[in-house]
Design a binder for these strands. Structure first.
Length: 958
RNA sequence: GCGGGGGUUGCCGAGCUUGGUCAAAGGCGGUGGACUCAAGAUCCACUCCCGUAGGGGUUCGAGGGUUCAAAUCCCUCCCCCCGCACCA
């Protein structure tokens, strides 16, 4: 068995020792700069991540072999709160966390407990990640390694510079923002902080303040709605008579008002910019029967009782729009039937009886009152039919929103989707509305076990991705970028359009403090947008030990934004103590490597990081330094199941390498899927691939012993070389587009299969020509495989006597004189014939046949085929052919042949020498089918001869 | 709700942008065979249905349509996956 591990270690050491992947600037050599989103190190990388990092490595290796000066750097992301959270949980001996780190990540016990300090987590996983990448054979320039946050001051200074410049441009702004909030612990709640309710939405209710005037005092009943436009159709108000409401003094900014809302709402609103002082608590029934005023229409409406009103949703005050809201319609019907109830509240039943529905929206397929129609259609009986009513509400909402036309002035004739926003705006302007954020579902529970609320946060720092000029520039950049796969471009465009203010700083976690407001730490998606530029100067910073405090903003200005200038270098050198030669070196490196050619990442980063990456580049850098391309890749599953840390269902990248060897893992992952589709890791398949790679190794080792003596090749040898040419072309084209799976199919499987056929075809042959052919193939094959399985290929390259590292060897190009489509056609011709004969034997049950007579097409038939290929039409072909008197003699046969050719659409005319091909392959065909072959005998056996067509010989078997 | 992407032969997965050469690549699985004492590995054949001469029939989520011709173009519908932010 091949000792992959030893081979891998050997070459990894050589690469590092000889700094093979630490490129030096060279203006004469074209550069190729590729990066991948650095990993966040809260644990080990798994085989899903492996894909993300292997792709750029394969591309880097490919480009390097094509002669580019390739930079492929790596760094570590440790910004944010998860690592801090882990330290916290380790400290508290949280069983799940301990399980994950001890049993899944296999952290040694003595190190594990040091994880109480987040720094130790970071240190440990940076070390292991580096080891993993080295053992994976990644061609990384480690001289540029760094990590984020204030723990690495030079980078932190770079981020400070970025934010200072963004702020100067007005792209970092302060504002308010709502968050999920734990009201007991007093902290914002991210997805990971929730036990329940991760995907509960936050709804933005409009509160329309209906006016209650009593004894000269005004109080407001803020009805909560998601459909503000329906304020024109309100017929009454709903309160839940059993629920507890409060009368409260509500201070909001400078304004102070009396509101009547549910008790729950008062509590919730106290987190949303409102100071609330409860004056009185009472049951809803107290207000039933009172009259209030619609602030928009000024209609006087009555307050009625309804069970469906949930005091724990929004304000607990609901306006009734029975024409367009099924719940309202049902409740109204209920109450009309329930005179007792009305009497109880001292309401004259005639008032309810006389409530007339107000139709607001024209909706095709519905009558005047869509809610009534829909409720009827779904068989709603009462307001207790909650499920049906919810369905009806959904249907109506959707239909009216998308297809409805508003009927009321001043919005008459406009689509509802537009009117909704207009009405909301107009009401807000008049000060008759307010807003309230509420969860779409009540069950949002924090990991502390508390029910969450929506809180409005002040003084939050945002990056303003909504800025229209900025957006335009970002769009321009995107339009000029390559996106792989191209089908993802629409998503980028949509996200770009979408994006608005994005909170960019938090008060917890590791990171770089905001330079002008150091209580805030720049969060992780915001400090990782332009670090590709930092890589270009990182080598010098590491090499010369430049300190953070030396990297004042002007230095970055000079390096990244300004023209090269000696005076400026002297100036800055004096100011910072950085030698001017070093400044010059950094400046030149940046100018040499930038712009970035490719940014790689998994597809989950499209809506955030990758888009931010574009935005921040266009904000900071000159156009010539805008990025050129993005390649996104899919994820990986493990034996069909999603990898999940908490369930322990993960395969660590390092463990996979340990088990199978890096080359096997790399090739396997690259061969499974490409672009944004996902792969599924199956242990059994990996094992099989390992065997195939061993065979590859053995084959090349074998061929390496052959000498290259110049001799005349046989056709089948030429066939193989032609196929090798095709593989080179296919693999190259695929890799140019990051299509790794297709590339592997060409570089590995297609050659493997062709070789198999060749061996079968040349069985028994052992001559110079065959050896020469195989030797040539070996020489190319290893190079085609080198980006995928670099270690084993280095080893084989050495055996083949190749010069230097295969990692730096020349990528193969098709050999012009090897192209030979005719020979390939002839080979196909032979294969097809064999298949046909086998088919005939099977179908005609001729198992004990002795020989096969083969009749090739005659010259006149080729002539006809040529004409048909050109004319592609029966009449035209016939006319052309019949100009020839010789052809006219066999008119009937000609006509038949033309008919068949046209039916088979044999329009791709290529002439081959059928008889020659047959003669050369005679023995092979005989051994394959076990019959004697007689080629073109004089006698027309079985009258089959006239069935022959070009590329399809006639066969008679006896 | 908004946005993005999909539904292909047992499974995975190409092909659909530039209609025909597509019963539809490749892999996996399955069946049979060669090799072997045997197993594994490897190699060969078959793997939608029918067929005593290389042929024919029915397929590419459903239903329409365009066309001489549609997995591929157009319309309608059904179903599935992913993202929606302060979180890496």
């Amino acid at each position: 068995m091949v000792d992959f591990k030893a081979i891998e270690e050997k070459w990894q050491n050589k690469w590092l020792e000889e700094k093979v992947f630490e490129p030096q600037m060279d203006e004469k050599v074209p550069k190729f700069y590729i990066t991948v989103a650095f990993p966040y190190l809260s644990g080990h990388l798994h085989v899903g991540h492996a894909r993300t990092y292997t792709i750029p490595d394969v591309i880097a290796r490919f480009k390097r072999m094509q002669g580019y000066n390739v930079l492929f750097p790596m760094a570590w992301h440790i910004t944010g709160s998860p690592i801090v959270g882990i330290a916290e949980r380790i400290k508290h001996r949280d069983p799940q966390t301990v399980y994950l780190y001890r049993d899944v990540y296999k952290v040694p016990e003595e190190i594990l407990w040091s994880f109480e300090d987040p720094i130790n987590i970071v240190k440990y996983f940076m070390k292991t990640a580096r080891e993993t990448f080295i053992r994976a054979g990644f061609s990384v320039d480690w001289s540029r390694e760094f990590h984020t946050t204030s723990l690495f001051p030079p980078f932190s200074k770079f981020i400070e510079w970025q934010f200072l410049r963004l702020k100067e441009k007005g792209l970092v702004v302060k504002g308010t923002h709502y968050v999920r909030w734990d009201p007991i612990v007093g902290t914002p709640l991210g997805d990971h902080d929730l036990i329940e309710g991760e995907d509960v939405q936050i709804l933005d209710y409009v509160l329309i303040k209906f006016i209650l005037e009593e004894n000269g005092e005004v109080a407001y009943l803020p009805a909560a709605t998601l459909r503000p436009e329906t304020v024109y159709g309100v017929t009454n108000m709903w309160l839940n008579p059993e629920a507890v409401y409060v009368r409260a003094k509500v201070k909001n900014g400078g304004r102070e008002e009396i509101w009547i809302i549910s008790k729950e709402a008062a509590y919730k609103l106290s987190f949303q910019d409102k100071e609330i002082e409860i004056l009185e608590e009472f049951k809803g029934e107290k207000l039933i029967g009172k009259w209030i005023k619609n602030p928009v229409t000024e209609d006087e409406i009555i307050i009625l009782p309804a069970d469906f009103v949930d005091p724990d949703n929004a304000t607990g005050v609901v306006m009734s729009v029975p024409a367009h809201a099924p719940f309202d319609h049902a409740a109204l019907e209920d109450i009309k039937k329930n005179t007792d109830l009305l009497v109880k509240y001292d309401i004259d039943p005639r008032i309810v009886e006389n409530i007339t529905y107000i139709s607001l929206i024209e909706l095709e397929g519905y009558g005047e009152f869509p809610a009534v129609d829909e409720s009827g259609k779904l068989g709603v009986e009462s307001q207790k039919d909650v499920e049906k009513l919810e369905q009806a509400t959904k249907n109506i909402y959707k239909a009216e929103y998308h297809r409805g036309v508003f009927k009321i002035e001043p919005y008459k004739g406009k689509p509802v989707s537009e009117v909704k926003d207009l009405v909301a705006k107009d009401m807000a302007k008049k000060g008759i509305t307010d807003r309230m954020y509420e969860f779409s579902d009540k069950n949002v529970i924090s990991r502390f076990g508390n029910r969450a609320v929506v809180k409005i946060i002040h003084d939050q720092w945002f990056i303003d991705y909504g800025n229209p000029e900025w957006k335009e520039k970002a769009k321009e950049a995107l339009a000029n970028m390559k996106i792989f796969p191209e089908s993802r471009r629409t998503q980028f465009e949509a996200i770009l359009e979408w994006l608005d203010k994005k909170a960019c700083a938090r008060k917890v976690g590791l990171g770089t403090p905001l330079p002008w407001d150091p209580e805030w730490v720049i969060e992780s998606l915001s400090d990782s947008t332009i670090y590709m530029a930092y890589y270009t100067i990182s080598r010098a910073i590491n090499k010369y030990g430049i300190k953070g405090e030396q990297l004042v903003p002007e230095v970055f200005d000079y390096l990244f934004l300004e023209e090269k200038s000696e005076t400026r270098e002297e100036e800055l050198s004096e100011k910072t103590g950085i030698p001017k030669e070093v400044l010059r070196e950094m400046k030149e490196e940046f100018e040499y490597w930038y712009p970035l050619d490719w940014r790689c990442s998994a597809k989950d980063l499209i809506p955030n990081h990758l888009t931010f990456f574009i935005f921040n580049h266009v904000a900071i850098f000159r156009k010539e330094h805008w990025p050129r391309g993005i390649a996104v890749n899919g994820f990986g599953t493990l034996e069909g199941a999603k990898m999940s840390k908490s369930k322990g269902n993960v395969l660590n990248f390092i463990d996979a390498i340990e088990e199978n060897g890096a080359d096997v893992v790399r090739l396997y992952i690259m061969s499974l899927a490409e672009h944004d589709s996902d792969f599924d890791w199956k242990r059994a398949e990996v094992g099989k691939l390992r065997k195939q790679i061993e065979r590859f190794y053995e084959l090349i080792s074998e061929f390496a012993q052959y000498e290259e003596n110049d001799v005349e090749l046989m056709d089948i040898d030429k066939w193989l070389l032609h196929r090798v040419n095709k593989a080179i072309k296919g693999a190259t084209e695929a890799l140019e587009e990051f299509r790794t799976r297709t590339a592997v199919q060409w570089a590995f499987y297609s050659i493997l299969n062709d070789l198999r056929w060749y061996m079968r075809r040349t069985e028994g042959r052992d001559d110079e020509a065959k050896r020469l052919t195989l030797r040539k193939l070996a020489d190319i094959w290893v190079r085609l495989m080198a980006p995928f399985t670099p270690h084993i290929c280095e080893e084989l390259w050495e055996r083949l006597g190749g010069e230097g590292f295969i990692s730096l060897a020349k990528w193969p190009e098709p050999v012009e004189e090897w192209w030979n489509e005719t020979i390939e056609l002839e080979e196909d011709y032979i294969k097809n014939l064999i298949d046909d004969i086998k088919e005939i034997i099977k179908v005609a049950k001729l198992e004990d046949a002795k020989r096969a007579y083969i009749y090739t097409a005659e010259e006149w038939e080729w002539k006809v085929a040529r004409v048909v290929a050109e004319k592609r039409d029966f009449k035209a072909s016939m006319g052309e052919v019949m100009k020839d008197p010789e052809m006219r003699k066999r008119g009937k046969d000609v006509s038949k042949l033309i008919q068949r050719l046209i039916k088979d659409r044999a329009f791709d005319f290529k002439r081959i020498d059928e008889e020659k091909a047959l003669t050369q392959a005679k023995e092979f065909i005989e051994s394959e089918i076990g019959l004697e072959i007689i080629i073109n005998p004089d006698e027309d056996k079985g009258g089959k001869k006239r069935q022959a067509m070009p590329m399809k010989p006639a066969v008679y078997i006896e």
